[in-house]
Write a protein that binds this DNA or RNA. Structure first.
Length: 827
DNA sequence: CGTCTTTGGTGTATTTTTTAGAAAC
DNA sequence: AATACACCAAAGACG
């Protein structure tokens, strides 16, 4: 079937596809068309990666648009959202408009309502529904990419409930679900009332095999000799072998999957011996440039290690990398510049990075709940293997699992090569998931009685899958109890059927996209401020579920009268320069012996112990260190500290404290590389934590305003803490850091040179500005422009030497990671 | 025989990931 | 639970 023969698409689309080289539809695509994707029929397509799933979605969406409708494309990752958006934008020349909406990026200018195709993450869609985005009921087609993720315990339920809601709002909605090959695609199809297209067909051959000894044995019976000498590294040999086998004038790149970040990094380092010597001079030059970019973006060890590897044509890839670096690595790999990536499983699910050869080195990974090393899911391994074979470049793709002995080889064949992927199973009937979604469902009017709620939940995958009718209802009831106790929903059971309404706070929590348990924790913590001060009717809600604390505060120093510490009411950390170590605590201890003051650390701990913040875990010596810190700064915590000896939550409390202090360090301008060292995290993790904290603090601020019984000063303190996190600066730099292109470092340098505010920037001597910015004219001009200066031009301005000296001196310990002496003894 | 390198053994520490909100001159 | 790595001792290589 030829694209141009398809009816129902916008004029010219079929021809454009042929011009792109799509002469014939692939068999699964043809089956999809026969099933009616282009005529508004719902469809589940369970086919391997890279076998043309996207085109199926495009046919559905474009034909829907041609009929005057509007389409939504749901992805699991933000990075995927932008990838898809650019892909779909090629249809704009046929009059189809595309928009994107994710947590960090919203389509510019034009409002999403006017867009024909919208790309968004599942959480974002959920949030849009909760906040009543007007265009939701205009949708006629929804595509759910990677729908097998409904199996994920964390995020699956969101997708499941979101699809159910969309279908409820728009009864005739065409639903197209794209899935990897899974064990029970038919069940998904049944759930969505959709036709099913299932196929193993791939445009490029995929050969899967196991390497053991001196050869790879493929599942199809063929064999490839790859001898490994004694003492040689198995992975290295396979990577070298792929590189030395030329197919279209070039050797093939490899993707190595390992089970930890550390392994990814060390594997990449080792593989430089393979990739480095095989580079051309030109490649070497371009890689050096790329490495330089990576180095200059961040002065952490991680970045330095990555740059060192990249220079030699090898790279590692994991969530500890900053997203810019991840993208750089992916791009350079696609451009065939980087020859080999060693990655944690992130990469398998992420943006498209095909390789000639995929090597699955580790097939087990640590799982605390499981209590040891757990074998990867078949589905996961298949996803990794699916990355093998670059369309248009490779005649075939190879996926190789590694075994060190004959038994393992046998097991790998059994377990992965000859096995079907496991079925997806809904994880909806779990408390954390239902807590959130039950509240949202009630708050956004999808159900107003218990029965209504249950019948809504009947539209989920869980309901179509389970035989245990009672379980969902049982969990729902527990969750409803929880929500009622915490005042998020109100129940009225005067007649037989119980009516449900969301309270004001309940609505707020739902719209803020908070886990209700996070909200409860935050409200409780914030209220404790007023309670400790004896200022408000704190215990009012003392009937208390397990998470509303009814502590006895008798022994806390803060019990008694609440006196405001200073006129501005904002906690001041003092003017300590450079070294941030252990500030705050001491200063406030004395000033506040009899008044609970809301400090940044208090706020950071509050949000860090919330279930919406992913925990940093405690390493060896951390327990003692943070226990000590816990007592030292006891007065700063909002809410009661669990007992060290009797309370199992103490351990979690310490882990949260670790996160909280990381955030405090960030807000105290501690250097990025020092934070990574101190907490054993990557630069990407810092960003992640900071982002989440910012979001949660914003939510906390809203809650503090809307909920009764919270001291007004607490609102101010939370806002302050949030702003400092947002820019990563101390209080005195907040104004400066708000100027575009001025981050924490530049702000500090300007400040040291005597330019302390945005207004100063407009008036200051240009020479001083330029000096403080280390003579970077372009940056200086841009900054002055953003600060609103009339004449930002830096022509003929010479940098002021003393300003640059002051800036460097004043910020030496912050910028350049000197000053190690003061840090040396923290272990 | 002395020094440097390689090998092998023991003990210890460590272990993936993603999303959400929204604002000012 | 399994591995990587650091550390150390013993053995070997070489002049």
């Amino acid at each position: 079937m030829q694209p141009s023969s398809l009816a129902g698409l916008p004029a010219g689309v079929g021809e454009a596809l042929e011009a792109e080289g799509v002469a014939e539809l692939y068999p699964p695509q043809e089956a999809a068309v026969e099933a009616g994707v282009a005529d508004g029929e719902s469809l589940v397509a369970a086919v391997p990666t890279a076998s043309g799933k996207t085109l199926i979605a495009e046919l559905a969406m474009l034909s829907a648009v041609e009929r005057g409708g509007k389409a939504l494309y749901i992805v699991p990752l933000r990075a995927l959202a932008s990838e898809k958006k650019t892909e779909f934008e090629r249809w704009e020349e046929f009059g189809v408009t595309v928009g994107v909406s994710t947590g960090n990026y919203e389509s510019d200018g034009e409002w999403l309502a006017s867009r024909d195709i919208i790309v968004a993450t599942s959480e974002k869609v959920d949030s849009l529904i909760r906040n009543g985005a007007p265009w939701i009921d205009d949708l006629t087609c929804v595509v759910s990419d990677e729908v097998h993720l409904v199996d994920d315990p964390n995020r699956g339920p969101t997708l499941e409930v979101t699809l159910a809601k969309l279908r409820k709002v728009n009864p005739g909605l065409q639903t197209v679900a794209l899935s990897a090959t899974v064990g029970n695609a038919d069940v998904i199809a049944e759930w969505l009332d959709a036709e099913l297209v299932e196929s193993d067909w791939r445009p490029i051959d995929l050969r899967m095999g196991v390497h053991f000894g001196n050869a790879v044995d493929f599942a199809d019976g063929s064999k490839r000799e790859v001898p490994v000498e004694r003492g040689e590294d198995q992975t290295a040999r396979l990577v070298a072998d792929a590189l030395d086998t030329e197919e279209d004038g070039q050797g093939g790149s490899s993707l190595v999957f390992v089970n930890s970040r550390r392994n990814a990094e060390s594997s990449a380092r080792k593989l430089t011996d393979v990739t480095g010597p095989r580079l051309t001079t030109d490649e070497r030059d371009r890689l050096r440039e790329l490495a330089e970019e990576i180095r200059s973006g961040s002065d952490t060890d991680t970045a330095a290690d990555l740059a060192d590897a990249v220079e030699k044509g090898s790279a590692f890839h994991h969530a500890g990398l900053r997203s810019e670096d991840r993208a750089r690595v992916e791009d350079a790999f696609r451009d065939r510049l980087i020859k080999c990536i060693s990655a944690t499983p992130t990469l398998a699910a992420g943006v498209n990075t095909p390789a000639r050869r995929v090597i699955v080195r580790d097939w087990r990974r640590y799982d605390g709940e499981f209590g040891g090393m757990k074998p990867l899911d078949v589905l996961e391994v298949h996803q990794m293997c699916g990355r093998a074979g670059r369309p248009g470049l490779d005649p075939y793709g190879e996926a190789v699992l590694l075994a060190n002995d004959a038994d393992t080889k046998e097991e790998l064949f059994e377990r992965y090569l000859w096995a079907d992927p496991e079925p997806v199973r809904s994880k909806l009937a779990a408390e954390p998931a239902l807590r959130t979604h039950v509240l949202a469902t009630v708050a956004s009017g999808f159900a107003s009685t218990r029965d209504g709620l249950l019948s809504f939940l009947d539209n989920t995958l869980y309901a179509t899958q389970t035989d245990d009718e009672g379980r969902l209802a049982a969990v729902t009831d527990t969750v409803l109890d929880y929500l009622a106790v915490n005042d998020f929903v109100e129940r009225d059971r005067d007649d037989g059927s119980e009516s449900l309404t969301a309270t004001g706070i309940g609505h707020t929590v739902s719209r803020l996209y908070l886990d209700p348990m996070s909200a409860a924790e935050m409200i409780d913590g914030l209220r404790s401020v007023a309670r400790d001060a004896g200022a408000a009717t704190a215990g009012a809600d003392g009937e208390a579920g397990e998470f509303v604390r009814t502590g006895d505060d008798g022994d806390e120093p803060g019990f008694g009268t609440y006196a405001r510490p200073g006129e501005d009411g904002s906690p001041d950390e003092g003017e300590v320069e450079g070294e941030a170590e252990e500030t705050g605590g001491k200063a406030t201890d004395e000033a506040a012996t009899d008044s609970p003051e809301v400090t940044p650390l208090g706020c950071y701990h509050l949000v860090s112990r919330t279930p919406d913040m992913y925990e940093l875990y405690l390493k060896s010596g951390d327990r003692e260190e943070y226990t000590e810190l816990c007592y030292e700064r006891e007065a700063e915590f909002l809410g009661d500290v669990p007992s060290e000896y009797e309370d199992v939550r103490f351990e979690d409390w310490l882990a949260s404290l670790k996160t909280a202090r990381l955030l405090e360090d960030w807000a105290n301008e501690v250097d990025e590389d020092r934070i990574t060292e101190r907490y054993g995290v990557g630069p990407g993790d810092i960003r992640g934590k900071v982002d989440t904290a910012e979001w949660l603090l914003r939510a906390a601020e809203t809650l503090a305003r809307d909920v009764e019984g919270i001291d007004g000063d607490a609102v101010v303190a939370v806002r302050e803490a949030r702003k400092r996190i947002e820019y990563g600066v101390r209080e005195e730099l907040l104004d400066l850091a708000g100027v575009r292109n001025v981050g924490r470092k530049r702000a500090r340098r300007l400040f040291e040179a005597g330019i302390e505010t945005r207004a100063d920037l407009r008036e200051a001597d240009k020479a001083v500005v330029l000096g403080a910015l280390r003579g970077r004219e372009r940056t200086a001009e841009r900054i002055l422009e953003h600060a609103g200066r009339e004449d930002p031009s830096m022509d003929d301005v010479r940098p002021d030497k003393s300003a640059s000296a002051a800036a460097t001196a004043g910020s030496a310990s912050d910028d350049d990671g000197e000053g190690q002496a003061s840090l040396g003894d923290f272990r």
